[in-house]
């Protein structure tokens, strides 16, 4: 069954007809040609498809597009602004926080989400007590564990995120 929806993708309103079965990820990639988010597992287990929906990081593979009608979606392609790439993206390059690059768009979206979550005072599993979290290595590792990287760029990813959050 088909549905007409509108998504605001990387700052641009996009009308698209989807199947009710179409995930947000497939709507972006196959129907809108927005291929920055990647399909690594299609079951929420790798994080390669992470995008920001209304400012929050989510896996776009476990979200039905029809249920996101009207949402604002930011992919790695949309993180850049007139000044160039997002500081997280620049820090990823500087810290060689990637190799094959396939998980990277999801990693950077997730990292932007993490920085906002830490700024908002959200705790993680490694936050001690009810204090405001600090952006330690342990915090970054825990918070970024939903984004698998098979090339093993984790140390660079942690360094990049700490650099931006410092």
């Amino acid at each position: 069954m088909e549905a007409d929806i509108t998504l605001r993708v990387d700052g641009e309103d996009r009308k698209v007809t989807v199947d009710t079965r179409t995930t947000l990820l497939d709507a972006l990639r196959d129907r809108l040609g927005v291929t920055a988010p990647k399909k690594g597992c299609d079951h929420g287990q790798c994080g390669s498809c992470t995008v920001l929906v209304d400012g929050r990081r989510v896996v776009s593979c476990l979200s039905l597009a029809v249920a996101r009608d009207g949402a604002e979606v930011t992919t790695a392609a949309g993180l850049a602004d007139a000044d160039g790439p997002h500081p997280v993206q620049r820090a990823f390059v500087a810290n060689d926080a990637l190799q094959c690059g396939f998980c990277t768009p999801g990693q950077v979206c997730s990292a932007v989400g993490v920085l906002a979550e830490v700024k908002a005072g959200w705790p993680s599993a490694v936050t001690e007590g009810d204090a405001a979290p600090e952006l330690t290595d342990a915090e970054v590792r825990e918070r970024m564990s939903g984004n698998l990287c098979r090339c093993g760029a984790y140390p660079g990813i942690v360094a990049a995120i700490r650099e931006v959050g410092a």
Binding site: V58, V59, G113, P123, S124, A125, G146
Partner: peptide, 29 residues
């Protein structure tokens, strides 16, 4: 829910349990 100040202060068990589950992206949805 995990970040809610009342939950963190008075029901930390709930916050800890939630934060030990899934990933940040999944918990956001």
């Amino acid at each position: 829910l995990a970040a809610h100040p009342v939950v963190r202060a008075h029901y930390p068990l709930l916050s800890e349990a939630l934060l030990s589950g899934a990933s940040g992206q999944l918990r956001n949805a």
